[in-house]
Design a protein around this nucleic acid. Structure first.
Length: 264
DNA sequence: CAATCAACCTGGGTGC
DNA sequence: TGCACCCAGGTTGATT
């Protein structure tokens, strides 16, 4: 579920509470959700910074190491959860705060790594970063033979885009998800660049998309599902031309598009 | 190297 | 209401 806007929302919410706080206790209830985390090693360290990279949430610790969370499809991070939550991991900090990580489907992971940026060095550029340009997107696309949708979803090319925002961006840009990435013209790449930035910024503004599982750090739903143009709107009219939205499989994922506005 | 696909798990929605 | 079936916002590792 959580793509860039959802993780960004959680990071922004946690930041004012957790930055500067010392970890006083860590409890692991579901070891299968954790990788490399040893409570004794981490207790006493301070959370220097809360940030996001791609779909990862990072807590930078005072010794340069980091706790990283990937929510995959159904993982959640709650600040001060209620008693009904069944956590896999609890991180208690000074100030009597608790960060809870849980995932009923057990696909999400919490990692500890001595050098978080090294751990995440496989990720492509941040699409919302100042330094990310249409030229760079065009270069990435022109080097790949796979479908443009597959290229957008591959985190090594661009970090943070998932199935929802890929479909939404391709619709805004008027590009068919099955088009080979390298077949896009410079003008199309430029359009796609703007579309990606727009849908991600909108997603953040509306605090993420809640179709089912996603909740923010306070357990609230996002609002972006109300603004989706094509994603999971099969059969409904295209917001631009009224043609029914179609669903097809691309890169193994269901993809939603307008056959008239996004011709092959 | 590139593309495809099954597997990881479980819960929610749908249709009979 | 019960049950079978399909689907899932992601990633990875095996296979072709």
């Amino acid at each position: 579920m959580p793509e860039l806007p959802e993780v960004e929302t959680i990071a922004r919410e946690l930041k004012p509470f957790l930055e500067g706080k010392r970890i006083v206790k860590i409890e692991i209830f579901k070891p299968e959700l954790t990788v490399g985390i040893s409570p004794e090693m981490l207790e006493g360290k301070t959370i220097n910074r809360v940030r996001r990279r791609g779909k990862y949430l990072i807590l930078d610790l005072s010794d340069g190491s980091g706790l990283l969370f990937h929510l995959r499809l159904t993982g959640r991070l709650y600040l001060n959860p209620g008693p009904e939550i069944n956590p896999g991991l609890l991180i208690h900090t000074e100030g009597n705060l608790t960060l809870s990580f849980h995932d009923p489907r057990k696909l999400g992971r919490a990692y500890w790594h001595p050098a978080p940026d090294e751990f995440l060095s496989f990720l492509g550029p941040e699409p919302l970063a100042e330094g990310f340009t249409p030229q760079e997107l065009y270069r990435i696309l022109s080097e790949r033979k796979a479908s443009v949708k597959a290229v957008l979803l591959d985190q090594r090319n661009l970090a943070g885009i998932g199935n929802i925002y890929a479909d939404e961006a391709l619709f805004l840009a008027g590009i068919n998800p099955r088009r080979p990435a390298s077949s896009l013209s410079w003008e199309e790449a430029e359009k796609l660049y703007q579309a990606i930035r727009e849908v991600l910024a909108e997603g953040i503004e509306r605090r993420g998309t809640t179709l089912s599982a996603y909740r923010d750090a306070f357990g609230r739903r996002g609002e972006n599902q109300l603004s989706l143009r094509v994603f999971r709107r099969t059969g409904k009219p295209c917001p631009r031309c009224g043609t029914p939205i179609e669903r097809i499989k691309v890169a193994g994922r269901s993809s939603h598009y307008c056959p008239k506005c996004q011709p092959i």
